[in-house]
């Protein structure tokens, strides 16, 4: 039954929803999975577009200074320094931040991918829900 409902929801989303809405849902799921106990997550990004999109989500507060953030979503910058969680949006950036980023959401091999790096999750004491463990890898 759950699958039927899910398919109905996704059909609706595909036909009448937009790519941006789906992207927001993906980030929302990821952010709340890595920071499950935060009522409000402070988010920073080097992409204004992404900040505008995600800032409208419930439970997300956009911050201007990366040092105030709980999580930073990096789309371009390759020299970011902060104590917050780092999540990237491209494969080259994931390689660049291999030792720090908890993961990335990026296109590769013709499909959108989500990848979490186990060593960096461990470093930050993050335990993902069981349904998301399929996206966790030790290396890439």
């Amino acid at each position: 039954m759950k699958n039927v409902l899910l398919i109905a929801l996704l059909s609706f989303t595909l036909l009448f929803g937009s790519k941006i809405e789906t992207e927001k849902k993906i980030y929302d799921t990821i952010i709340h999975a890595v920071l499950p106990n935060y009522e409000t997550v402070r988010l920073w990004s080097d992409s204004k577009v992404l900040l505008e999109e995600l800032g409208s989500l419930r439970g997300i507060q956009v911050v201007n200074d990366v040092h105030d953030a709980d999580i930073a979503i990096v789309t371009k910058r390759s020299d970011l320094k902060c104590d917050c969680l780092l999540f990237v949006t491209s494969y080259p950036l994931l390689k660049r931040y291999k030792n720090r980023a908890i993961g990335g959401f990026f296109w590769q091999k013709g499909r959108p991918n989500i990848l979490f790096l186990q060593p960096n999750l461990q470093k930050n004491g993050i335990e993902l829900p069981p349904s998301m463990r399929q996206f966790v890898e030790d290396d890439f």
């Binding site: 759950k2 409902l5 899910l6 109905a8 929801l9 996704l10 609706f12 989303t13 595909l14 929803g17 937009s18 790519k19 789906t22 992207e23 849902k25 993906i26 929302d28 799921t29 990821i30 709340h32 499909r111 959108p112 991918n113 989500i114 349904s131 998301m132 399929q134 996206f135």
Partner: peptide, 29 residues
């Protein structure tokens, strides 16, 4: 009911969301 359903399922299956995202992102658009 649909909205309620949406919230209850929201983010429940990243794989399905990725599948939808892939179709919506088709370059032909």
């Amino acid at each position: 009911s649909f909205l309620f359903m949406s919230f209850s399922l929201y983010g429940s299956d990243l794989n399905e969301l990725l599948e939808v995202y892939k179709k919506q992102s088709d370059l032909s658009n």
